[in-house]
Design a protein around this nucleic acid. Sequence first.
DNA 1: CGTTGCCTTGAAGGTTTTCAACCAGTGTGG
DNA 2: CCACACTGGTTGAAAACCTTCAAGGCAACG
Lengths: 237, 237
Amino acid sequence: MARTVPAHCASCPTARLCLARTLDDAQLDLLAETVGTADVYDAGAYIYRLGDATDRLHVVRSGAIKTIALTPSGEEHVTGFHFAGEIFGLMGFTTGAHDDSALALDKTSVCRVRVSDLPQLWSIGCDNAFLMLIGEREKVLTRQRLLLCQTRAEARLAAFFLQTGELQERRGGNSSELYLPMRLTDLANYLGMTLESLSRTLSRMTKAGLLTRQGTAFVVHRPDDLLAVAGDWATSS
Amino acid sequence: MARTVPAHCASCPTARLCLARTLDDAQLDLLAETVGTADVYDAGAYIYRLGDATDRLHVVRSGAIKTIALTPSGEEHVTGFHFAGEIFGLMGFTTGAHDDSALALDKTSVCRVRVSDLPQLWSIGCDNAFLMLIGEREKVLTRQRLLLCQTRAEARLAAFFLQTGELQERRGGNSSELYLPMRLTDLANYLGMTLESLSRTLSRMTKAGLLTRQGTAFVVHRPDDLLAVAGDWATSS
DNA sequence: CGTTGCCTTGAAGGTTTTCAACCAGTGTGG
DNA sequence: CCACACTGGTTGAAAACCTTCAAGGCAACG
């Protein structure tokens, strides 16, 4: 972790997405006081590691993170990508120790709320927002599940782009210019396909004029055509 | 729903798995008073339907349920199976209306906690158990995710059996005699493969002496061999 | 300038899907 | 009582798709 900055929930652009979503100004100040600071991580830095004590609840404030789990054979498997406003690191609450690791994909700031502060947060009025975050998390995971039930690489990838676009749009961004700071290797792993499959599918889509890639930015040119190959359940609508 | 029965948390065999897991006897009585009753459903009966208001939190007390979502083209997709002690129906908390339907696979009883009663439950001492349930839910979904990242049908099915066995063992059952009251069609849909693939794979495994099926009971004879074909991430260990 | 990380492309092989036929058990109406 | 339809599952053969193994490209870096 590089440094910490004051939480400043009242001026945080992510406030309407996270635990603060239902709060008024006075409550926002109370929340910021409880949370204290947000921590800033450089790309590649770990937010927590497998085995660390789960004594905090994490929410991405800006940037992006990935969570990875180690398979018995020692390879790492990407279990999730998380962007601004998303809660992560919930798996450890059962045992009190993390079952996965989380690391920043880009310069990323994260609000880390102490579990011991949660009762106070409920009294401030965050309980409803927490339920909503849980509901959203469940929805995202369910849609990922449906994505993975598609067998064709083309369909998985298209569904991923559409889902990510939709999430990004809800965060106030553009659904056609996607911020995806992960490597293709990670994405392939996450989508349950080989790097070669992903590369080929991406090439085909690019050649077909469906999208272009410029570093971490994927630009979707013809979302309708993407929807056509995504099969069922690409979007929540 | 056929009928309702008193919640009786103190004598419920599922109490150590659900929201009651951390409570003492006095707290258990308070919880039972708040919850009131559990509802009993016959096989095929809906617990809730898509579009219903999400004003309750559901926990399976006994039996089994499946959750299904409708695809844009109108087919149903099985998004989950839930057994005793498992929480379900969380997706609706974001919008206040359910995004999926839930129905009993067998004679099933379900505790349905009003969302408006949650603050009182937190004060009783259920807040920690709720976090643990969320953590478990997250863990289950992550393992399902890893299962679906396997491409081979054999690996998916083996991983499913092992994961289900582990869950069932934690519920006090036997990890080698699995209670799976769903139809093969549902299971195939859930595992992201065709019914034909599932049938073939099941036949192969049975012929190999790995398991036998008797109605809703699947008996695993050689879990080690199952583990061998399951690839990585069949289990949580 | 060689190395490394990250990605692309090619060809062969393997597994699943698809389409189709078929079977057993069950319930229904005449 | 029997023909009939229906649900749920099994099995076969061809086609489609992905994975695997292998080679190569390219920019960054020391």
